[in-house]
Design a protein around this nucleic acid. Structure first.
Lengths: 147, 147
DNA sequence: TTCGGTGCAAAGGGTTTGCATTCAC
DNA sequence: GTGAATGCAAACCCTTTGCACCGAA
């Protein structure tokens, strides 16, 4: 997806919620698009030093409500933001237990099917109405294996 | 595993690290063993009201280093502690998005094996040495569905 | 002119830490 | 006696919020 497309579609989703694609939000999306992985707010502040923290959080909250970005949690409990899956494509994450870096992971149909069965089992046995799931794969990345 | 066994083995693991199974740590393990799912420190304080927060955190850190407990993160980024899997057996979690309660979920061997194999494949593609995986399921529990 | 967005400052909540004290081996 | 464990208070860090002001539809 081109950057123009991304911004246009983000503007649409925001408009659905009577919100606007302001300069702050636009710059935020540009930084997130260029980022190699999910970013924390303190990290975003490096690229957006002139924007107050509270504005960053509020902009991210708006973008999350408009489903343009999603918020993850890293192992330290800090929020990490990335573009939503309709932009980046469906994926999960692997996290290195040594360096803490998180990478995107594309999953096969077989795994998705297995997860689907797990979810319906759980829904039945625990009488839950399932709304979502998160898979965390842990290991040591190739770089850290060499050290 | 009986409670005596649990405490004995915990004592061993602590001893390996020149740490002791003190009354605080013993009570902590008893509360965690009785809990239906991973607990936050604020929750633990309810059952262990006479123990200062800092002592709870330090005891939990020691127990985590001795690999007797593990620390998870819930969707709010808050740490949640539970007994290690060599005590409880491998399992996953389902969390109610309304009341916030987390329950342990047992998964059938067949399904677990299938998921484990698929996750390993995924990780291998990324040159990760896998140490584990966790699936966090979100939904609304039966009690909250009625309200 | 109305309502959303921003900036600033203060507060919130979980978590960590410095330091003195107490305790177990 | 020596290192581990505890208690207390303060500090930390990420995050949220109240309030006043600005700006776009």
């Amino acid at each position: 997806m081109s950057q123009t497309d991304l911004l246009d579609r983000a503007a649409e989703r925001l408009a659905d919620r009577r919100a606007r694609l302001t300069p702050t939000r636009r710059r935020l999306l540009q930084v997130l698009e260029a980022a190699p992985g999910p970013r924390t707010v303190p990290e975003l502040q490096i690229d957006l030093a002139d924007i107050p923290v509270s504005s960053l959080y509020r902009a991210l909250t708006s973008l999350e409500e408009a489903q343009v970005v999603i918020r993850l949690r890293d192992s330290a409990g800090t929020g990490r933001y990335e573009l939503a899956e309709w932009i980046t494509g469906h994926h999960h994450h692997v996290t290195c237990t040594v360096c803490g870096r998180t990478e995107d992971v594309a999953v096969g149909d077989g795994l998705e099917t297995a997860i689907g069965r797990l979810l319906s089992d759980v829904a039945a046995e625990h009488r839950y109405r399932i709304s979502g799931h998160r898979i965390e794969i842990e290991g040591v990345c190739s770089a850290c294996q060499r050290h």
